[in-house]
Design a protein around this nucleic acid. Structure first.
Lengths: 124, 124
DNA sequence: TGCGATCCTGCAAGTATGGACAAAATTGAT
DNA sequence: ATCAATTTTGTCCATACTTGCAGGATCGCA
């Protein structure tokens, strides 16, 4: 990524995938959204959880990631015309179909990349 | 990430995953290796296939990606002491366990990111 | 001596990514 | 008038990643 830019044109879905998820929060956002629609502020709060007291997510950054995800077609932005602004994000069909992939990644990561991974690694 | 640096320390397997696969060829290399050990030059040739006549992979880059994958524990480097040099790379146990994840990514990508994806997208 | 085969590395440059900071936009409440 | 709430965007910067070119090291053989 970072990622992965300069994708080999088309014809390589893996490269497209890498480009799509490049970004620090994209996968986490998708994961957070799997349980239902969330508002901007809710996503922001949700991303805070699990980050060991590190810095907050800058609004700018969150906005960019959300926009990128929207353009990728993974999430959908619904703007209620209210004031103060209220915006909801939710997974599209494509996004929902992507959740199992993320689940697979998480599961594999939990088993092979966590602190307990060293033990497993010992057995080559 | 293109990619993903400054991982949230530990505790986030997804971030570790992103860091691990960041790089233009890492996933493809793992995929190529799933059928058995390959030599440096074979991997290089294999990566050429499927790239529409675009540039070759620089030795520098391939070397770096292979090294990174080795340090991640996904592949294993076996250096026969011969001359001219002969080096073989193959998946470790960890690497093999990772293949299904890549397969899931590929499958999802094929269905949702290829040229035919537009059709599917049409249905929201 | 010169060439071939095979793999590895030092250095430099282009580019994107994450982040800081501030501001806009709207309407109701104080 | 002034402030509050909520989301989005504009501009700028430092960092660090990815990539590419060129060169190097080894040994045998003609």
């Amino acid at each position: 990524m970072a990622k992965a830019r300069a994708a080999p044109a088309r014809s390589c879905p893996v490269a497209a995938f890498q480009k799509m998820i490049s970004g620090k929060y994209k996968l986490r956002i998708v994961w957070d959204l799997k349980d239902g629609p969330r508002r901007y502020g809710e996503i922001r709060s949700g991303l805070l959880r699990g980050m060991e007291g590190s810095a907050e997510i800058t609004p700018r950054v969150l906005s960019r990631e959300l926009k990128a995800l929207t353009e990728s077609g993974l999430i959908d932005r619904k703007d209620f015309g209210e004031v103060p602004p209220k915006v909801e994000y939710r997974l599209t069909r494509k996004g929902k179909s992507f959740v199992p992939v993320v689940a697979a990644i998480r599961q594999w990561g939990d088993r092979n990349l966590g602190e307990s991974a060293a033990l497993v690694d010992a057995a080559e």
